[in-house]
């Protein structure tokens, strides 16, 4: 039954990457919706109440993803949605995120470094949402 399928929202401005992740997640039974930027992403979050958000940190602004993560946590209706951050930041600035260390600072469940392998993507999403 379609209603039982869990819904994943991908917020990323790279539509090709979104497509790759969509195929991966759909292959194991998730429904995938997407948004190319933050405002649209927040709308979809409110309307469609996804079970998990995959969030790219660097879109138009350097920290748009981080801002969005805080915004999600501040809205009562959606604040419990698990958030997984997609990042290519680690190797670029030389500092790496450690989800165990940084969760006090950033209210997210996990970090995935790009390029994300299909296996890692599925494993990480499954950790928080069973299809």
């Amino acid at each position: 039954m379609a209603d039982n399928k869990k819904k994943i929202l991908i917020i990323d401005d790279d539509i090709d990457l979104v497509e790759a992740m969509r195929v991966t997640l759909e292959s194991v039974g998730y429904i995938v919706i997407d948004a190319q930027e933050g405002t649209r992403g927040m709308e979809k979050l409110r309307q469609e109440k996804p079970d998990l958000v995959l969030l790219d940190v660097m879109m138009a602004h350097l920290d748009e993803g981080f801002q969005l993560a805080y915004q999600i946590r501040s809205e009562e209706a959606i604040k419990d949605t698990p958030v997984v951050i997609l990042t290519a930041v680690g190797n670029q600035t030389g500092f790496t995120f450690d989800p165990h260390k940084d969760e006090d600072f950033l209210p997210v469940q996990a970090f995935l470094e790009k390029p994300v392998s299909p296996r890692d993507l599925i494993d990480t999403v499954r950790e928080y949402v069973r299809a």
Binding site: A20, T24, S27, P118, R119
Partner: peptide
């Protein structure tokens, strides 16, 4: 160097991810 290595990395990462979907999923 820093900016260009980052700018190059994003599209190549996507290529990598897309190929991985063909290889691992499809």
């Amino acid at each position: 160097l820093r900016v260009s290595s980052h700018e190059l990395k994003a599209p190549i990462s996507t290529i990598q991810s897309t190929l991985a979907v063909i290889h691992d999923i499809l």
